[in-house]
Design a protein around this nucleic acid. Structure first.
Lengths: 244, 244
DNA sequence: CGGCCGGTTGATAACGCTCAAATGCGGTGG
DNA sequence: CCACCGCATTTGAGCGTTATCAACCGGCCG
């Protein structure tokens, strides 16, 4: 899969592309890079000149406060396009890194601007993509601020599964989610110990299985209910049927 | 102050406008509306055809989960432009309302698109504005997930003061912040009771005074320290000197 | 075989929530 | 001018969710 095709795939999850749009995207220049867990791509304070698209693996974005605790803002699955915002925000105020071995496409801003100028539809959809990211941040804010640990975790799993299904990397409510329990803790704003306890609880009640970087949802309806999950905030164009 | 001037003022806080840009903005069409506390402007599920700019007062954006708790995502002070994102996200997944008597400008999307097409700089800055909103959401996520109550509240006050100074509505570290303790609780993800206790603590230690909708920061350096406040995430163009 | 990382488990403590009631204050009507 | 009402704030007591500290387990890799 080329870089352009990957971007096109993402954009078609949240809107419609004409053949001309797809054609324009196929000319997108950029490099492929392979990363190991822990590699940093765009670092706090930097002024990046390129955007990123995930081809395989999993990235995450986080800030670290001086006191130590890391807050993960988001995880990025294949076809996700993190940090498109660097197009219009010069200075990174957070860090993007690989949380698992990953392959990414690195697209110079100049290339993005060229294609967006050529095809206004693409500009609209890339903008839309950044707005959906913001919408997800809002949902995470609500989740981490207002929900109990088990609901919170259920909500997280529902989101990741929904996105994995949309991206076409899930089968039978099973998908790879190559993160550790400690990563999960840093995303949910919980302590690693309590993440473990909550996870065991969800496991023994046969709602979710999360082991060795693989997520399986055993009882979607019940999980979605305790998570109070409504996928509207993901603004996926054809919503994958989750309730089935 | 006209609608166009207000938008121009906001954009100049985060970038530079040429005389031509300002001229183009001055032609922005739109209506003025006056609101009372509790009035809703853009509601969950709606498909708005206009964007908003705050002329006076204070707006807030929130979601209400079926279980009841309200999460406030952001407050908007004069010159802020909430919900520019409706330009590219059709369906509201949250609600924008007035939290105090306010005057707003209502700008049809068609007007925004017209001006942005005419002046690419404006497009870039409006986009940038939406990205800064996202950056603020990330910071709120970190704050609500990772900080202790008093640091959290200190951080909130630092942000609002910084923004008020930038918007030119603060004097001597005093500004209007016409929200109740309960509103504050819904923003910080705390209970109203604990907000009150925390507030009293900050008050008796002479760090902050927040009473009757007026915020006064008595000891900025110490407050910023316990808040671990770094205004970088606001991406203000000429950063107001807060540390003074 | 040993070390390391990630996961699991136990015990204790703390931060913040809930329930409940009281106080203060601005506005309205008598 | 006073009585009253409603809303926001304040205070108290007890509880619960989640954090912290510490130890142990188990698999993978050198």
């Amino acid at each position: 899969m080329t870089i352009g095709e990957t971007v096109a795939k993402r954009l078609e999850l949240i809107g419609e592309l004409s053949p001309e749009d797809r054609q324009a995207l196929s000319t997108l220049g950029g490099d492929i890079r392979d990363l190991r867990r822990g590699d940093e791509i765009l670092v706090y304070g930097q002024r990046p000149k390129e955007s990123i698209v995930v081809i395989s693996g999993c990235l995450h974005r986080y800030t670290i406060s001086p006191q130590g605790p890391r807050q993960i803002h988001s995880f990025y699955l294949p076809t996700d396009t993190p940090c498109m915002e660097t197009l219009h925000i010069d200075k990174m105020d957070n860090t993007l890194g690989a949380i698992a071995p990953s392959r990414i496409g690195v697209i110079p801003h100049s290339e993005m601007f060229r294609v967006m100028e050529e095809r206004p539809t693409i500009l609209g959809l890339v903008w839309r993509d950044t707005l959906i990211q913001a919408s997800i941040f809002r949902e995470w804010l609500m989740r981490n601020s207002r929900m109990l640990a088990h609901s919170q975790m259920a909500h997280f799993f529902c989101e990741m599964m929904t996105r994995a299904i949309a991206a076409g990397i899930a089968r039978d409510f099973t998908c790879e989610l190559p993160i550790t329990q400690e990563d999960l803790a840093d995303a949910l704003g919980m302590s690693p110990v309590y993440v473990n306890r909550t996870l065991m609880m969800l496991r023994t009640t046969h709602l979710v299985e999360f082991r060795g970087g693989v997520l399986t949802i055993n009882d979607w309806p019940r999980l979605a209910e305790i998570a109070d999950f409504d996928p509207a905030y993901l603004h996926l164009h054809p919503l994958p049927e989750g309730g089935a």
